[in-house]
Computed example of a mutant assay.
Amino acid sequence: MRINKVLNNNVVVVKEGQEEIIVMGSGLAFGKRKNDLINPEKIEKVFVMKDKNEYEKFTQMLNMLPEAHISLAEQIISYAEKKLKASLNEHVHVALADHLSFAIERIKQGFSLHNKLLHEIKALYPAEFEIGKWAVDLVFEKTGVRLPEDEAGHLALHIHTAKMNASTMNEVMNTTVILHELISLIENTLQVKVEEDSISYQRLMTHLNFALKRVVENEPFQDVDPDMHALVKEKYNRSYQTALLLRDHVKDRLEQDLPSSELVYLTLHIQRIDKKERS
């Protein structure tokens, strides 16, 4: 491989045909110029950015952010792809590095942002959250800066949305915010505190997440026998009334209705939580 462009001491661009390939490695480009050969033993990562806008953002970022922060972001991306056994969208190279660098500098200055969606992120994206925790430990090991657990949640969202065919960050954030609101609605209505580590909470979050996805994507819901609906409504009326409030909230936020069958499933989930918290 011959260098087409040196971006910094650790990153170069090479050309294969009409395609520009980004090659990374510690000290890979130190003392190198265009047309010089790359030492293959120094190559740590090779990737293609087909989106020209992302490529331009990445090259600009290399001039703005500390090389150490970019290197950390790339280590996290490589680890995430290995753990998830999936390729991440190319936009993650810019988004994750930018977020990570800002978080490190913010903590150095004594500022920490609370992640109010942390519990929801843990429940919905456990694999990505574990990667986020690994990343927090890596940052501490390499920089001495201890990022809070809240940042593991933010990093988990970046990783989740970067998975191929995943929803956009805005869509994921919107869904997660609605889920947070629904849990708060249950707690305020029933005057209970939902334990985020409980199986009941995990099941409810998973169910609500898939329900919202079906609503947004107009996917069909499973039918429920009318007699079953009537029985659940009568036997667990307190939880059923809470489920109605959740349905109204979803309609307000998404301008779409949950079907009556969902009221049955939500009632059963809510009843399980209400019973556990009051036992």
Score class of each variant (00 low, 15 high):
E195Q: 09
L204R: 01
L179C: 14
D51M: 14
F140Q: 15
L100K: 06
K233D: 06
F129V: 09
M64P: 00
H69Q: 02
V250M: 06
S71E: 06
H119R: 11
V94Q: 12
L84E: 13
T143N: 05
D197M: 04
Y201K: 03
E255V: 08
L266K: 06
L254G: 01
V216Q: 12
S87T: 13
D137M: 01
I186E: 04
S71F: 00
K108R: 11
L118K: 11
F30G: 04
N8K: 07
Y236I: 00
L204T: 11
V215N: 05
T242M: 02
Q222E: 15
E20T: 08
V23I: 15
H180T: 13
E255R: 10
R247A: 11
E74W: 09
L182V: 09
G31F: 07
I70L: 13
L204N: 05
K52A: 10
G27I: 07
L7Q: 12
T143H: 03
G153K: 01
L147S: 10
L246Y: 05
D197T: 12
E41R: 10
N63L: 13
T168F: 02
F102D: 06
D223N: 08
V250F: 00
E19C: 12
F129I: 11
M228H: 01
I178L: 15
P148A: 06
M1R: 05
L245Y: 04
R33H: 06
K142H: 03
A95D: 13
M173W: 01
H93W: 03
L208F: 08
